[in-house]
Design a protein around this nucleic acid. Structure first.
Lengths: 189, 189
DNA sequence: ATAAAGTTTCAGTAATTTCTGAAACTTCAA
DNA sequence: TTGAAGTTTCAGAAATTACTGAAACTTTAT
């Protein structure tokens, strides 16, 4: 049976673009295309439909789905009387974006933080190395702040985070007022 | 003349690691190594020293330096009586991190925003497409918010941004108080 | 138990990305 | 104006990453 999926020009452009961007976002072309396809289809799609629509091998689709699941971007959708697996997005657009962000932080920052912690334990062998260690420690502190903050933002939840983002330049004004409002919290490092 | 540069084990580990992470951060292995080398050396380094220290071809170094300059992460350092170019970091660790962030936003978000704007101008051909367009518009709005916000954060400047990051869970409390403080700003979307 | 309908794995191949090295170019001192 | 000391460019080679397709595997209906 031929795929039910409709690849209109609009959807095709979007899928192709997500493919192009895929590698910049942390996955490869076909994985990006697959994600777009699943997200843009209201109905759940099967692996075979994806292979047909994108003209790629069944094996490739299987690996791509595995990866998308490891990123928690798509999930299987069990259909009662059916044998095959259907796939759907693993949440709202907002949730998916969050997962990508979080997953990338894990892959891009955590390993470096861990290495830096180790390197900072060594005793510098000479002044050159002492200076390098100083720089590494600045990098470490920066990455640690970013990590802690991103955690903090996650904890806020979608609604508050949205409020914060929509605040715009109000953020600056709020910070000016902050000391009066939360006197218990010191600002100094 | 042999390179003056000292590749101690500590610096070597850091350089190697930055090489490994390079591709995840948006550039390739040798470019990542070069960046680390330049950032971790207090003295300015020459292209030839980089080639020697990393054991890569002179041509590769030239291209890598060009890329690092296009990211505004390193800059030439003119030494009066000298013919050759020396290179130094183009700012503090904080500034460099900002530039990487900003540059990546440009490469990873802007092209998609631009495509989405175009796609949203089309009239949907059927209900399926209308639904897809709805999703695309959610993605568009999200990316636009992120872009605007990142701009906002840049405008805050290093000190306020640091204050904000160090605020931790205080951010949540501040948002609770927000309406009383800035009554002019509506929260509704 | 069997076989039909589906999925996963993985060795080999294809495509892409990165790197080399030699030639072309630039700059400056004599 | 020549040549020495340096840089850049880019075609092809090497390395890496992604994809295919066939075989192995799983699940379920009969």
């Amino acid at each position: 049976m031929i795929s039910k999926m409709k690849m209109t020009p609009l959807i095709t452009s979007a899928v192709m673009h997500f493919g192009e961007m895929g590698s910049r976002w942390g996955f490869n072309r076909t994985v990006g295309q697959m994600l777009a396809l699943i997200v843009l289809n209201e109905e759940p799609v099967t692996a075979q439909e994806i292979a047909d629509a994108l003209n790629i091998s069944r094996g490739n689709v299987s690996m791509g789905l595995k990866e998308l699941q490891s990123w928690r971007l798509v999930k299987p959708h069990l259909v009662p009387g059916e044998r095959k697996d259907y796939f759907v997005p693993a949440g709202s657009v907002w949730e998916l974006a969050n997962r990508v962000f979080e997953e990338r932080r894990k892959r891009e920052i955590d390993p470096t933080l861990s290495l830096l912690r180790d390197l900072l334990l060594d005793t510098p062998a000479n002044s050159n190395e002492a200076q390098a260690q100083q720089t590494l420690s600045e990098i470490h502190d920066l990455l640690e702040s970013v990590t802690a903050w991103s955690q903090e933002l996650q904890n806020l939840g979608p609604d508050k985070l949205n409020t914060l983002m929509k605040l715009g330049s109000g953020v600056g004004r709020m910070l000016d007022l902050k000391d009066k409002l939360l006197p218990g919290k010191s600002t100094v490092n």
